[in-house]
């Protein structure tokens, strides 16, 4: 981030620097899915994660819309990366992102009015989703178009998976259905609180507990294997 943009092309060609353009590997894609999962690891973009995941279909719609904005704003920002002056870059990124969000907003309204009503203002609020601005600033503004597309797709799909992880759990517990199909028959007493706001906090908290537990377990195994004390946090 510290180096001047005009030096970047020459620097990347001559010496291997930290911010050099990344070569395309499987890792470019997988990183966003797992090691740098925007929701479970980086805790970004929490608002839509909590607000629209009261059913699987809403979670899917939101995830795909965000992925679309992520990929296309990434392409445009990556194409324009040598022309956007450093001082006004954030404002430029936001305008680019807002353009694509407006597109998505009208598209969803045309495709499914029902989904549009369910997602409400949260489609327009994709503009202020930190994941997108974060990717724009940290990745798209420095990298070639192709790697940007792959990386944005990885991050977008990682975000969608996280939304689905919450959406399915909340729909199953709070409504007894999955994608509208009843799972437990008519005698099921739905756990209503799960599709109401508190449920969002609880389910996300529970997922984070689970991932913490996995990480601590792995650390413990490493410690017993090597005998070296590992940092628990």
């Amino acid at each position: 981030m510290a180096e001047a943009p005009q030096d970047r092309a020459t620097a990347a060609a001559s010496a291997p620097l930290l911010t050099q353009e990344e070569t395309l590997t499987a890792d470019t894609f997988i990183r966003g899915l797992w090691q740098e999962n925007p929701v479970f690891v980086m805790l970004l973009g929490m608002c839509p994660v909590l607000a629209v995941t009261n059913s699987t279909i809403n979670a899917l719609g939101m995830g795909l819309s965000t992925t679309f904005v992520l990929v296309f704003s990434g392409i445009l920002i990556s194409l324009l990366r040598h022309w956007i002056p450093k001082q006004v870059r954030i404002a430029s990124y936001i305008v680019i992102i807002a353009t694509f969000v407006t597109l998505v907003d009208y598209a969803i309204q045309a495709i499914s009015l029902e989904l549009y009503a369910a997602l409400g203002a949260f489609i327009q609020l994709i503009v202020v989703n930190c994941i997108i601005l974060g990717r724009a600033e940290a990745y798209a503004s420095k990298q070639r178009v192709l790697t940007t597309i792959v990386n944005s797709l990885g991050t977008g799909i990682g975000f969608t998976l996280a939304l689905l992880a919450l959406g399915t759990v909340r729909e199953i517990l709070g409504n007894g259905t999955i994608l509208g199909i009843s799972l437990f028959g008519p005698d099921f007493q739905p756990w209503l609180i799960m599709i109401l706001p508190p449920g969002g906090f609880f389910v996300l908290g529970a997922w984070l507990l689970y991932f913490n537990w996995l990480r601590l377990n792995r650390l413990r195994r490493v410690t017993t294997f090597t005998g070296a004390p590992a940092d628990a946090r």
Partner: peptide
């Protein structure tokens, strides 16, 4: 407990607060 350090615990707290506001 170690496992509930950080964000997980904050989210559980937020859930309880949200329950109160309901």
């Amino acid at each position: 407990p170690d496992v509930s350090q950080g964000a997980a615990l904050s989210l559980m707290l937020a859930g309880l607060l949200s329950l109160v506001f309901m």
